[in-house]
Design a binder for these strands. Structure first.
Lengths: 360, 360
DNA sequence: CTGAAAGCGCTAACAG
DNA sequence: CTGTTAGCGCTTTCAG
């Protein structure tokens, strides 16, 4: 039986070189050479070409050389799609769903994950959900259809039972930053409660009693944990009306700025602020820029230039979140069936001035 | 002929639900249901199942319903790998190679590209090369093996003839930020020369004559174009010893800081600085932070918090670079065979204070 | 050390 | 409206 590729003319190296000087940029349709083409040109069987091209042992040196030459002449490139299909319909890429790559926090998470995965020979497909549930569901489905071998998710959904099926089918899922609901799975999050308590305690230590909290979307676990830590420090210190100065649901710096201005416009404005993520901190700084006597401020998440601006922050390592999450995924792919691992990344307070201002 | 899947037992919804309460997180091995499994359960042929699952017309409503029910029961998910293989061994993803996602400039480029591609139903695989040639070559090969349907590259190589072959084989490549060498291809870059001239002219207008330039790796086209623009403004203004204050090859903020300190330690230090990218500008700001009378400064690339820090910059839109580049790629995938398109993104100077300081 | 045949899961082409 | 057949490009199995 002859394949239809039998009569194919091979694009010669000459023809390739010639077009280097063409001015047109055509997306032309020379069929891509297959392994069979290489085998024929080398005068060996398909299997032998496969062996050589995959670096398998037990091939005569001369044979291998012929195959390599043929592959070079044809500009052959192994078809990873066909290989994956044959090997079990699972790809060598991992999907990462974050809310926005342009947010430095997530960019660093992605970077950490990419590094760790690459060291294991896997690729990372990053997608941004914009904190939208439908978008996250759609991206998840797309990535699974493309047969990623695992998923790293910074979820904005409130239920993850649908992913249990995937896990049973061999696709591990690791949750980053926010824990899953309705299933048990590996999770890497920040020690939010401790971090928030640290921030609040620091401000209390400077003598502040009216401390404002500008928070992210109130449905997010991170937000709730940070509020919990804040609350525990304040109530322990005997500040019972702490809720008066809590403003949640700022998911970008503009809305955070509005909340700050509203808070500062009260008759009894707060003397200090705890801004619960990098976007919010930046919004607050902008809103406060022209104040002669700005309130003290501690922000959750470190950010570039916080040093120059003298902003005291609760710092942690986003890269580690990505790297550790990727590591957990790799362990599952390796067959680990240990109980779900839940990791909390450590935080520390970095004093830079803004958090050390005393009450007005 | 019976397939080996014939005797497979389907994982029932019950068994799936049951495990929701298991505490173990096994990456177990239930085989994933195929379209044939769905077809059998629904009592229709494979092709009919395929039609329904792909939303093709000409299927009776009742038949479609049966198939959907079966698919739901089995938690079926179409195998994108098999589909792609059948449809021509080309995937629905585009590869993007940048130097580092954690650099906000590239993160914004990635964001722009992702948005544009997603609107066309494609996914983006982002990889960081760390400005390393071997790494870029390796990533390129990997992405091509995975049969991305196109490539967006911020290259650090000095020759791209090898990509000509890919183009002939139908894989378009668009160059971002830096033009290709040795081949003709679509390119989206910033108007570097104009931007640099704008920066230099602005500083000259404030009366500066000794203007330092802290630059990126000198082999980069972007660097050379920015130096050219800088030079043309200075020589036109009669400043002939402009090279005295040029320091190149700072690729991170630390080395930029060192160059700044070295420059400022001269007997006749510059009274103004032009920092040619966001990393360098930030390094310079850190190096200058404790100076009572810092030199004037204009930076290439806008960056977050430049407003608060009062840094005058040459601004442009990195998202557009990604989006326009992706658009050019999509046009090629659509069959466009127009001549290579070379786009220059506009720049503008934003005055924020640092660039308006007069000479000491 | 080398090769022939089967088939991964799907869709295209063509019947009915 | 529905089904049958072939085959995408590769790796696996088994036989030389």
């Amino acid at each position: 039986m002859r394949r239809c590729t039998a009569n194919r003319t091979f694009p010669s190296i000459d023809s390739v070189v010639k077009t280097l000087h063409d001015a047109t940029v055509t997306t032309s349709q020379d069929p891509r050479p297959t392994m069979l083409d290489v085998a024929r040109l080398a005068g060996v069987s398909l299997k032998t070409a496969s062996r050589v091209l995959n670096g398998e042992p037990h091939v005569a040196a001369g044979t291998a050389a012929k195959v390599h030459t043929a592959a070079g002449q044809l500009a052959f490139r192994l078809n990873g799609i066909a290989r994956e299909l044959r090997q079990g319909a699972r790809s060598t890429s991992v999907g990462l769903i974050i809310s926005d790559v342009a947010n430095p926090f997530y960019a660093r998470v992605a970077r950490g994950a990419e590094r760790r995965l690459r060291s294991a020979g896997l690729q990372l497909i990053t997608a941004s959900s914009d904190e939208d549930a439908d978008s996250e569901r759609k991206l998840t489905a797309e990535l699974l259809e493309r047969r990623v071998c695992g998923l790293l998710i910074t979820t904005c959904l409130s239920d993850h039972a649908h992913l249990e099926i995937e896990r049973r089918l061999g696709i591990p899922v690791t949750f980053l930053d926010r824990p899953p609901v309705g299933i048990v799975a590996d999770t890497v999050a920040i020690d939010n409660e401790v971090g928030a308590r640290l921030a609040a305690q620091h401000l209390l230590d400077q003598g502040h009693r009216r401390i404002g909290l500008i928070g992210d979307l109130s449905r997010l676990t991170t937000h709730r944990e940070r509020v919990a830590g804040f609350q525990s420090a304040l109530t322990e210190a005997g500040v019972d009306d702490w809720e008066r100065y809590v403003r949640a649901d700022s998911h970008d710096s503009e809305s955070a700025g509005r909340s700050v201005r509203a808070l500062m416009a009260l008759k009894q404005p707060p003397t200090a602020l705890f801004t619960t993520n990098n976007r919010i901190t930046i919004g607050a700084l902008r809103a406060l820029r022209d104040r002669a006597r700005p309130p003290a401020l501690v922000g959750f998440d470190d950010f570039e230039l916080a040093d120059l601006l003298g902003v005291t922050v609760i710092s942690h390592a986003p890269e580690d979140m990505g790297a550790i999450g990727a590591g957990l995924l790799l362990a599952r792919l390796d067959g680990s069936s240990a109980g779900a691992h839940s990791e909390r990344l450590p935080v520390r307070l970095i004093e830079r001035g803004s958090g050390e201002r005393p009450p007005a």
